[in-house]
Amino acid sequence: MSAVIELSQLSKVYEPTPRWMRVFARSHLTESVRALDSVNLAVHAGEICAIVGPNGAGKTTMFRILVGLTTATGGSATVMGLDAERDSERIRQIVGWMPAEDRSLLMRATCRENLHMHGRLQGMPAKLLAERIPYALEQVNLVAQADSVVAGLSAGMKARLRLARALLPGPRALILDEPTGAVDPIAAHGLLELITELVERERLAVLISSHRLEEIEALQSHALLMDRGRVKYDGDLEDLRREWDHPELELVTADHGAAATIADDLRARGLDVAVDDLSVRCRLGGKHRVGAVLAGLGPLADSIEHVREIPMPLRDLIARVYTTGGSK
């Protein structure tokens, strides 16, 4: 099955601003910056791909290339077989783009008026808009707010309106740039559930960026970890865990003496151990597995009342990938 979104050796280099232009530019470069470095990616129908990375990783540049707001220096980017540079106008008709900020919304206009204006800017005929606007509002649960002024909406509702705008042309692909960045955790959870349902129902291909790693993990998606334009990891988060996770083992003991004795035993085996009251914790990895650790305790295991294996937080897991150079 061919990919809906495909990047092949995609590169982007921002060249220094010419001297004569620097006085007019809001910002300028004095040396070349490689924003994307030979990035390969394929996203299929019904799939969510999370783009993760610090500021300057290249996420926004990738998105801008896909929707024709900037051009690549090398390689190619296609959506439904259309070239992002040559066919940018057609791509914008089949891609739903949701920017990170509310500034693209008309605050003094209603939800319906916002969708109508943006639809006309995309070249959608009035008859099609009359059909798509109610549908898009229904998909994001904003039917009751259709004629409400945007300035009076909550941050979560504004985010859903931006999603409705992305759904307006009936896209086959969605590009979502930090869609939950301005909303509270409860509204963010609802928005992500809505996106997941849309992907399953409409068989959309989705690229999503977010700094909230717990949201990325909740999506159970394909992930692309980037750093300074380079891919550090490309694959499923579950595969990432299997490859890089060093879980923590917690042993709750019956008394303080047992905790101290078990801690000494584990340290003697080369494990990094922390003791907190009756609890003994150690980080597993390498040859150390839960079964081997417990078996090695021998009679000391009789003083253990509770055993728990704690997965490494996604933040620590991703940090480990970055600090060790990644697997790809």
Score class of each variant (00 low, 15 high):
55 N>Q: 01
277 D>S: 07
179 P>A: 02
51 I>Q: 06
75 G>R: 11
183 V>N: 10
50 A>I: 04
209 S>H: 14
298 G>I: 09
188 A>C: 01
296 G>N: 13
191 L>G: 04
32 S>R: 12
193 E>D: 13
45 A>F: 00
251 L>W: 14
295 A>V: 12
320 R>M: 15
301 A>G: 09
178 E>P: 10
192 L>A: 00
119 G>Q: 06
165 R>Y: 10
129 L>H: 08
270 G>I: 07
158 K>M: 10
30 T>W: 00
311 P>T: 02
52 V>E: 05
228 R>W: 14
289 R>Q: 15
83 D>H: 01
24 F>N: 00
231 V>R: 11
37 D>N: 11
213 L>D: 14
215 E>W: 14
60 T>C: 06
130 A>M: 08
290 V>R: 13
171 P>Y: 00
75 G>V: 03
314 L>A: 02
94 I>E: 14
241 R>F: 03
14 Y>S: 02
317 L>I: 08
223 A>C: 15
128 L>F: 00
302 D>F: 00
261 T>H: 06
201 R>I: 11
178 E>V: 05
257 G>I: 12
65 I>Q: 08
85 E>D: 06
319 A>G: 14
305 E>W: 13
326 G>H: 14
3 A>V: 01
223 A>Q: 08
223 A>T: 15
107 M>K: 09
33 V>Y: 15
294 L>S: 11
168 L>S: 03
8 S>H: 08
4 V>C: 03
131 E>C: 03
45 A>R: 13
102 D>H: 10
255 D>P: 07
215 E>L: 04
162 R>H: 12
136 A>I: 13
310 I>E: 07
274 A>N: 07
84 A>H: 10
253 T>C: 15
112 R>G: 05
247 P>G: 03
230 R>K: 12
94 I>M: 11
248 E>N: 09
79 V>K: 00
52 V>N: 07
289 R>N: 10
317 L>N: 13
62 M>T: 10
184 D>H: 07
108 R>T: 06
232 K>P: 01
286 G>I: 05
181 G>N: 14
319 A>F: 15
168 L>R: 04
36 L>K: 04
170 G>F: 01
308 R>P: 01
99 P>E: 07
179 P>I: 10
27 S>L: 03
36 L>D: 11
242 R>M: 05
61 T>K: 02
62 M>D: 07
96 G>A: 09
310 I>V: 11
11 S>G: 08
51 I>S: 05
65 I>P: 02
131 E>H: 06
190 G>P: 00
87 D>L: 03
288 H>D: 15
28 H>V: 00
122 Q>I: 03
275 V>G: 07
294 L>R: 04
183 V>P: 09
256 H>D: 13
185 P>M: 07
81 G>F: 12
150 V>Y: 10
127 K>F: 12
171 P>N: 00
5 I>P: 01
152 G>I: 01
21 M>Q: 11
49 C>R: 05
309 E>K: 15
63 F>H: 00
246 H>C: 14
169 P>T: 02
231 V>P: 02
11 S>A: 06
323 T>P: 09
155 A>P: 03
250 E>Q: 14
74 G>V: 04
225 L>K: 01
254 A>L: 09
200 E>Y: 06
249 L>C: 08
323 T>C: 12
177 D>A: 04
